[in-house]
Amino acid sequence: MEFMDIIWYIVICFAFVAYLIMLWMIIGDLFRNREQSGWVKAIWIVFLFVFPWLTGLIYLVVHGTGMAERSAKEADRYKAAQDEYIRSVAGKSPAEHISDAKQLLAEGVIDQAEFDALKAKALA
């Protein structure tokens, strides 16, 4: 196998991977786009498999801005959900723990020694 054959093989592999990524991104955007009807989406998918590179480039030119906006909106939604999850499992701050312990002490549920232990634990 000659050196140029290896280079050509690398170029072909790169083009194939680029095609798969383009196909994945466009099909994902098609299903994310709520403004298009199902028939229009089906036509895009058929053309993507019949004339893949040409259809992919046309789709990117026609829907490129909307594709970026939908992708950013989706990323914002995922980030908000992740932040909410982290807040829900992160627990309370030391000040909140001490405040809760102070309230329990005021209600007489715990005594001063237990309050001091909870305060020390919260500050540790």
Rank of each mutant, 00 (worst) to 15 (best):
I21M: 11
T65E: 08
S37K: 11
Q82D: 05
V61C: 12
V89M: 06
E84H: 11
I98G: 02
K102W: 00
A106G: 01
M25G: 00
I6W: 07
E69L: 09
H63G: 01
L57W: 05
F51S: 09
L123Y: 03
L20C: 12
D83C: 03
I7S: 11
F3V: 12
V11D: 03
F3K: 11
F14T: 11
M1F: 12
I12L: 10
I10F: 10
T65S: 07
I27G: 01
A95P: 02
V17H: 00
K41E: 07
G56L: 08
F14D: 00
A117V: 03
V50W: 07
A75I: 11
G66E: 09
A42K: 10
E69F: 04
A117E: 12
I6T: 13
I98D: 02
I7Y: 15
V50K: 02
H63S: 10
K41T: 08
A81K: 14
I10Y: 06
I26H: 03
Q112F: 00
Y85M: 10
Q103D: 13
A101C: 06
L54G: 09
A72G: 05
D29S: 09
D76I: 02
I86D: 14
W44H: 08
Y9E: 15
S93D: 08
G66M: 09
L123N: 13
D76C: 00
E74L: 12
E2N: 15
F16E: 06
